[in-house]
Design a protein around this nucleic acid. Structure first.
Lengths: 125, 125
DNA sequence: TTGGATTGCTATGTTTTTGATAGCAGAGGG
DNA sequence: CCCTCTGCTATCAAAAACATAGCAATCCAA
């Protein structure tokens, strides 16, 4: 149908479609992880609410990502609106540690940038 | 410098640059997770070896992703070639469960497709 | 010293994907 | 009927990714 990265078919990173690579292909699309994250953090919601949670996603891309995620059985559309499937929640659970890591990561980046800044300052002596 | 998603600056998913969203922005770029994965699975290697491991990445994109990952302190270039940093290994560790999940995911997708196929077959009765 | 072979890219032109914005059609509710 | 909310699609511009060719800087043996 579309260009969904089906395991078993050639995907980015694997001509034989290794599931891991297929998953990376799917999640490596812009906003994919963010959309799943928002749905799992904030609970089921409407298209527009989801768009709002993402702060700056365009409807075209959101729609595209929703299609991907639905086709990937990670998100479904119910009377309550869009929500993660059981499978989607499992995946989102794996994303949780990323949040914690991101804090540490941000600290390192800050330190490094401050160091760089000091170096730059010193160069001006 | 480039358009690296620095935590604290506007990134996809967060105008205030929440670290989690900044990380998603970085990892949500094509090949980002795949490159990190390959480096952590196969160990340090040269640019061309890495390109080979990725099976179908173009040098331009690989170079771009390497820049991102280096700027993100996740990958470094040593005399042994490119290799993940300590921080990069921590992140890659979080990626490991994805591989297991991907197997389950692939199974579900297959089942669903077979069901769909059967439905389609039945429609032909 | 010179002719490969390897490495880390850059250059170029094309195709996809995203992004920004406008707006439409259908389902309620009043 | 009018208004709002919802889930999108249409359109066009910009950015990213892709495919391919090839270059400059090692390195290394002859």
């Amino acid at each position: 149908m579309t260009n969904f990265p089906y395991p078993g078919k050639p995907v980015r990173g694997s001509k034989t479609g290794k599931p891991t690579m297929a998953l990376f292909d799917l999640l490596g699309r812009r906003w994919a992880m963010g959309v799943l994250w928002q749905l799992c953090q904030g609970g089921a919601c409407t298209f527009r609410e989801l768009q709002s949670r993402c702060e700056s996603i365009s409807p075209a891309v959101l729609n595209s990502r929703i299609k991907d995620l639905r086709q990937g059985l990670l998100v479904e559309h119910t009377s309550d609106g869009y929500q993660p499937t059981e499978l989607g929640q499992q995946l989102a659970a794996l994303l949780l540690p990323f949040s914690e890591f991101a804090q540490v990561w941000a600290t390192h980046l800050n330190e490094q940038n401050q160091a760089t800044q000091k170096d730059a300052d010193n160069e001006c002596d």
